[in-house]
Design a binder for these strands. Structure first.
Length: 570
RNA sequence: GUGCCUGUAGCUCAGUGGAUUAGAGCAUUUGUCUACGGAACAAAGGGCCGGGGGUUCGAAUCCCUCCAGGCACACCA
C-alpha cells in the first residue's frame, strides 16, 4: 500500500470507466482525480468532489454523477463504505478490520515507513548551505541548511537517489579580504604593532581570526611574517571549513559532495561558457549597457569596456556584466558554468536552496542556462525569506563581516539542535521567520519539539515497562483494540501522502505540521488507553501494546525525517 | 520607481478550488489528574481570511486593482 490517496483515486477512475461502459454515465474526459480527507471527519475518511467539476461536461446533475460513480466502485479490502452526499460528493470510509491489520505492518516498517517509489530510478541533487568559508555559519544560513537537508531526506523517502552538495567559492574578492585580515591578525599574534582597519567591507572583524592566528603562530612561529595574503587565505579557509562542518554535524547535516568554484576555472568551463555565449551573439563589449541613452554612452565612451550578457533577449529586465572592465568575471559566468555542470552530471531533479537576496542572481543564471540550451526546468529554486533575530523585543542585525552576528553554534548552545531544527523547519520557506532568542532559551517547555518527542518518550516508556514485566504482545488479537485508536492508525497511513506532497512541492514544513498532528492524536489516546493497570483485560492490554509498538515506530520515523533525535527519556 | 515575497484569532503560524459552522500552538478562563514520566488531556471565549472588484455551481485559495510590510534591484560575492 503505497498511498491511500492513489488507491482511492484509482477506484474512482475505474468506477467512471465502468459507469461509462454500462451507460450510466455519458462519455467525457475525466480530469485528474483528486481525493482529500473531508474537513468534517464525520463525513468519512476520504472524499471525491470531482462530480461537481464534471457536471457541465457530462450534462448531468452532480448528485446523479456521484451516484453513478458510487454504484460502480469496485470492492476493496480497505473500504468499509461508500456514500454519496449532496451536492455531489463521494465519501469513503476506511474499514476498521483492515486498519487493525495494518498495525503489524507499521510496527515492522521501521525506517522505511511511508517510503514511496515516486522517485525510483531517478537521481536528485540538493544544493544547500554553500556558504563561503569566510566566517562561522550564522542563523540566516542555518534556515537554508535545515530546509535543504529536510528536502533531501524527503526526496530519499520518496525513492530518489539523493546527493547533498555544497558549492563554495574560494576564488573571489572576499577570500582575498579574508587572507588580508588573517595576515594582520597573524602579525598581531606575533606581537607586531599592526591595526586591523575598521572597514567592515574589506576586513573581517570576527574574533575567530584571532584564534586562528594564535594557532598559526603555534604551528609555524614567525616563519610566515613575509608571506602574502594567499598563504593566509588558504590557512583561514581550511580552518573555517573545519568549523562549518563541525557545526553542521551538530544539526545532523552532512554533505556528500563539496564543489569548488575554482575547478570551473581550472577545467576551462568558465571560459567555455563565455565563448558559448559569444557564439550565440549574446555578449557585447561596451562601457555601459546598450539600453543606455546616447548621452550616457557619449559620456562614458572613454571608460574601459566590460563584457555584457545580453540577457534581455531571454526576458531579463536589463543586461548583466559577466566580465568586468578589469578582465575578471562576475559571479554570473561561473554560476552559469556551475549549473551547466550540474545538469551534465545527469540529475533528474536539481534543488537549489537560496536566500531571498539571491533571487535576481538566480534568474540571470537561469537565463544563461536557457541560452546555452540547458534543461532549466530541472532546476528548482527554493527561495527563503530571511530569519530575523529578536532579542529583548528588538531586532538584532546580522553581518558576517562585522562580527556581531549570531552564530548557529551559539543558538544550538542556547537551545538544542532539535529545537533549532524544528523551529526553522515548521514554517513555509517564503514567510519571514522572527526568531525570538529570549523565547527560544526559556521556551524549552512550550516548544512543540518537546511535545512531539514526548510522544516518542511515552511510547518508549510503555515498551520499557512491558519488557520489565515480561509482557509480550506478539500474539495480540488486534480485534481487541479499542476503536478510538483507529484514527491514529489512519493518520500514520497518510505519512506517505504527506511525504509525496512535501517532496513534490519542496515544502518540508508540511512534515513538521504532520508530526505535531500525529503527536496530538497520540497524547489523547495515551491518557485513555492504558496498557498496565487494574481491571484491564490482558487481551485488550496486549492489543494496546501492539498498537503502541506501531506508534513508537511511527514517531521514530517522523522525527528521523526531520533530522531530529529520538530520546528514550527526557 | 521595477521585480519577487508576505498580509488569516491578542501573539506566532497551518490551510493541496469544495460540504450553511475557516484550523493549530502560545496567551486567557474552566475542568481532569499525580500517571506505562503531567513537558499531558478535556472544554470555553476570541475571525468583515488587509480593502474593493471579477472568474466559478463553489474562493482564504485563481485573476485584476488598491493599501500596508519585507527583500532585491552594483563593473560586491
Amino acid at each position: 500500500m503505497e498511498s491511500l490517496l492513489n488507491a482511492h483515486a484509482t477506484l474512482i477512475e475505474n468506477a467512471v470507466k465502468a459507469a461509462q461502459a454500462a451507460g450510466d454515465l455519458p462519455a467525457f474526459a475525466l480530469p485528474a482525480v483528486e481525493i482529500k480527507p473531508p474537513n468534517r471527519p464525520e463525513m468519512g475518511d476520504y472524499a471525491y468532489a470531482g462530480a461537481l467539476a464534471v457536471a457541465k461536461a457530462a450534462g448531468m446533475k452532480p448528485i446523479d454523477i456521484a451516484q453513478a460513480i458510487a454504484k460502480h466502485i469496485a470492492p476493496a479490502p480497505f473500504i468499509a463504505s461508500v456514500e454519496v452526499a449532496p451536492p455531489g460528493f463521494v465519501n469513503f470510509r476506511l474499514d476498521g478490520a483492515w486498519l487493525r491489520a495494518q498495525i503489524p505492518n507499521i510496527a515492522n516498517a521501521a525506517d522505511t515507513l511511508g517510503n514511496l517509489t515516486l522517485g525510483k530510478g531517478k537521481r536528485a541533487q540538493v544544493e544547500f548551505v554553500s556558504a563561503n568559508p569566510t566566517g562561522p555559519l550564522h542563523i540566516g544560513r542555518s534556515r537554508g541548511a535545515i530546509v535543504g537537508d529536510t528536502i533531501a531526506r524527503l526526496l530519499e523517502a520518496a525513492g530518489y537517489e539523493v546527493e547533498r552538495e555544497y558549492y563554495f567559492n574560494n576564488a573571489g574578492m572576499q577570500m582575498r579580504h579574508l587572507g588580508n585580515s588573517m595576515r594582520i591578525r597573524y602579525l598581531q599574534a606575533l606581537g607586531l604593532p599592526v591595526e586591523l582597519p575598521k572597514e567592515e567591507g574589506t576586513f573581517y572583524q570576527g574574533e575567530y581570526l584571532r584564534e586562528f592566528a594564535q594557532q598559526l603562530v603555534a604551528e609555524r612561529g614567525d616563519s610566515l611574517a613575509e608571506a602574502g595574503w594567499e598563504t593566509f587565505k588558504e590557512y583561514a579557509e581550511r580552518k573555517m571549513f573545519g568549523m562549518i562542518r563541525q557545526t553542521l554535524e551538530r544539526i545532523h547535516i552532512e554533505h556528500d559532495h563539496f564543489f569548488n568554484e575554482n575547478s570551473l576555472y581550472d577545467d576551462g568551463s568558465v571560459n567555455a561558457t563565455l565563448e558559448a555565449l559569444q557564439e550565440r551573439d549574446l555578449i557585447y563589449v561596451a562601457p555601459v549597457r546598450e539600453s543606455e541613452t546616447d548621452e550616457v554612452k557619449a559620456k562614458s565612451a572613454n571608460q574601459a569596456p566590460a563584457q555584457w550578457f545580453r540577457s534581455t533577449r531571454l526576458g531579463d529586465t536589463e543586461d548583466r556584466v559577466v566580465l568586468k572592465s578589469d578582465g575578471s568575471p562576475t559571479y554570473t559566468l561561473p554560476d552559469i558554468a556551475y549549473h551547466m555542470n550540474k545538469l551534465a552530471r545527469g540529475f533528474d531533479v536539481l534543488v537549489n536552496v537560496l536566500g531571498a537576496d539571491h533571487y535576481t542572481e538566480h534568474q540571470v543564471v537561469k537565463y544563461g542556462v536557457q541560452a546555452l540550451g540547458g534543461e532549466a526546468s530541472r532546476i528548482h529554486v527554493i527561495i527563503m525569506q530571511f530569519v530575523r533575530l529578536i532579542r529583548e523585543g528588538r531586532e538584532v542585525k546580522m553581518s558576517t563581516r562585522r562580527g556581531d552576528y549570531e552564530t548557529l553554534d551559539d543558538l544550538i548552545d542556547q537551545t538544542s539542535s532539535d529545537a533549532v531544527r524544528y523551529m526553522l523547519l515548521a514554517r513555509n520557506a517564503n514567510s519571514r521567520v522572527d526568531f525570538d532568542l529570549d523565547l527560544a532559551v526559556k521556551q524549552s517547555t512550550d516548544n512543540p519539539v518537546y511535545y512531539i518527542q514526548y510522544a516518542y518518550v511515552r511510547c518508549a516508556g510503555i515498551l520499557r515497562e512491558a519488557e520489565a514485566r515480561g509482557f509480550d504482545a506478539s500474539a495480540a488479537d488486534l480485534a481487541q483494540l479499542d476503536d478510538e485508536a483507529l484514527p491514529f492508525v489512519r493518520r500514520v497511513l497518510t505519512l506517505g501522502d504527506t511525504i509525496a506532497y512535501a517532496a513534490q512541492t519542496f515544502e518540508p514544513h508540511h512534515i513538521a505540521f504532520y508530526a505535531h498532528d500525529l503527536a496530538s492524536a497520540f497524547h489523547t489516546l495515551y491518557d485513555r488507553l492504558r496498557v498496565f493497570g487494574d481491571g484491564i483485560d490482558p487481551h485488550v492490554a496486549a492489543a494496546r501494546l501492539r498498537f503502541y509498538q506501531a506508534a513508537h515506530v511511527s514517531f521514530k520515523r517522523v522525527l528521523g525525517l526531520m533530522g531530529m533525535s529520538t530520546p528514550d527519556r527526557m
